[in-house]
């Protein structure tokens, strides 16, 4: 097997003095859809931001496409970024540019292609995400689902071998959300991409994932196929999957103290 596209080893990160990730290790193979799943506060967004090189970790290593990024210079990181696509949770389309200009921006910045070729490529990407004919609109004129699809089109503009998606289905209705899942599967099949999806949506995760990494409070609880994760007997995983609140012993004194605002 060739080297993994993403290789995270013993990643420890802090936010201020608070430790967020406690030594996380995960691999993403070529052509694989890896879903990183966890509730809010699990550290999944932090893991994503580190894999994108937006933050520097306390310790540990992150290799993206065979290159160590934690010690990489800013310019090398920019160079590597050309081979990575990212679809942000809110789309992060540039609100001052049309949808078409948004999708064309990576091409304009990183290639010397003639403008007509860029336009054709931009329209091709918009076709892939079912937004053909919308290139002249401003992002504010699009619905939530359309913004996310446009963000996907921009993320794959440079035909990257590796795509990261942050909460693709957050804030969308089930139908639109399923359409985005289909889009992710289609992108992998059509472009042979490795895709890393960060989500807390179980349905979506089970539908698209080849493998799932379950994160909780900065620890990896499990890495495995959908079946393996579903059948995992660990209590923490089952409570996450069944959306049960972690049961805690009620403490009447502490409850009363919280309500009255007094210190024990």
């Amino acid at each position: 097997m060739s080297d993994p596209y993403v290789k995270v080893r013993d990643l420890v990160t802090h936010y201020g003095t608070r430790q967020i990730l406690n030594g996380v290790s995960v691999d993403v193979e070529r052509g694989e859809i890896m879903v990183i799943m966890g509730g809010s506060g699990s550290g999944k967004s932090t893991l994503l931001r580190h894999m994108l090189g937006l933050e520097r970790p306390t310790s540990g290593s992150i290799e993206i496409l065979g290159r160590e990024i934690t010690t990489m210079s800013e310019l090398d990181l920019y160079e590597l970024s050309k081979k990575i696509g990212v679809a942000f949770q809110g789309g992060a389309l540039f609100s001052s540019m049309t949808v078409g200009d948004n999708v064309m921006l990576p091409l304009q910045e990183h290639t010397k292609l003639p403008i007509d070729t860029m336009r054709i490529m931009m329209r091709m990407k918009l076709e892939v995400v079912d937004l053909a004919g919308f290139e002249g609109l401003m992002p504010s004129e699009l619905s939530g689902g359309m913004v996310k699809r446009a963000a996907f089109a921009r993320a794959v503009a440079m035909d990257p071998p590796l795509l990261f998606c942050d909460e693709p289905s957050a804030g969308l209705d089930p139908v639109v959300s399923r359409a985005l899942d289909e889009l992710i599967l289609r992108l992998r099949d059509a472009m042979d991409m490795s895709i890393v999806v960060v989500t807390h949506e179980l349905d979506s995760a089970f539908y698209i994932a080849d493998r799932i990494t379950v994160l909780d409070k900065g620890d990896i609880l499990a890495i495995g196929t959908v079946e393996e994760v579903k059948n995992d007997s660990s209590e923490r995983i089952q409570s996450l999957l069944n959306r049960k609140l972690r049961e805690e012993e009620p403490d009447p004194d502490a409850y009363l103290a919280r309500l009255t605002g007094t210190k024990l």
């Binding site: 990212v86 809110g90 992060a92 540039f94 990576p106």
Partner: peptide, 18 residues
């Protein structure tokens, strides 16, 4: 400010644009 809170600045960075 708006671009920072809507992650547009982060989007620029990960696109390889300073």
């Amino acid at each position: 400010g708006f671009m920072t809170i809507s992650e547009e600045v982060a989007a620029l960075r990960v696109m390889g644009i300073n």
